[in-house]
Amino acid sequence: MLEVNDLHVTVEGTEILKGLSLTINAGEVHALMGPNGAGKSTLSAVIAGKDGYEVTQGSITFKGQDVLEMEIEERAQAGLLLGFQYPVEIPGVKNIYLLKAALNAQRAARGEDELPAPEFMKLVKEKLGLMKMDASFLQRAVNEGFSGGEKKRNEILQMLVLQPKLAMLDEIDSGLDIDAMKVVADGVNSLRAEDRAILLVTHYQRLLDYIVPDKVHVLVDGRIVKTGDAELAKELEANGYEGIEESAA
């Protein structure tokens, strides 16, 4: 589904990713782990199309399409969706409005009609319930005055409504207490499907107790130095990244 090949990325003149390769197939859950500054968030940002990242070498393809040639919104419309570590506030824009605009933009790109309002509301209410969110969230401005946990839940809510093909979740566990983490993990687990892949970017193993990945990659200094199954994450927890770096060296 997603092929990242020998990716080199520079940010403000500094090379962050130095030849990263990664293949994610439909139905799989991947975790990308690594120490701070290893380039974990850079990968998902580049895939989503954030400004300020220069790809100097390598390629990213999604279902055979050259991702780097696509506009930001086209990537989302194709099914690549990024859940933010720090979602921004958009004052005055109701959450429900953003959800509706996003869903309809994606439907339009697929040549589908807008979802009629009653069906849309039914869909959103169902997903809200899953995320243990109150309906009042819909009427609040996007992320404005949301607590850290509310913001993260809101990101997952968007995923549940938009149903991406590849969900990329950047440090979705940061700043969550254990109860909120469980809710977020339940939400992510409900996204698991045959035709969908999930990429979790995380610093801690903790999240992976709740969302068990099929593959774990360790990213150190811009390259994936080790790939394994869920056991690798536990190993990391026990030995730290330094142990991995040594064994990889």
């Binding site: 199309g49 989302a76 953003l98």
Partner: peptide, 24 residues
């Protein structure tokens, strides 16, 4: 970027943000 990464075009994103700004 946040709006666009949800599939909303740049033009629509601008109008959404500006309309939000003017809501009061």
């Amino acid at each position: 970027f946040y709006c666009q990464s949800r599939g909303i075009t740049e033009e629509d994103a601008v109008s959404m943000i500006v309309n939000g700004f003017c809501k009061d």
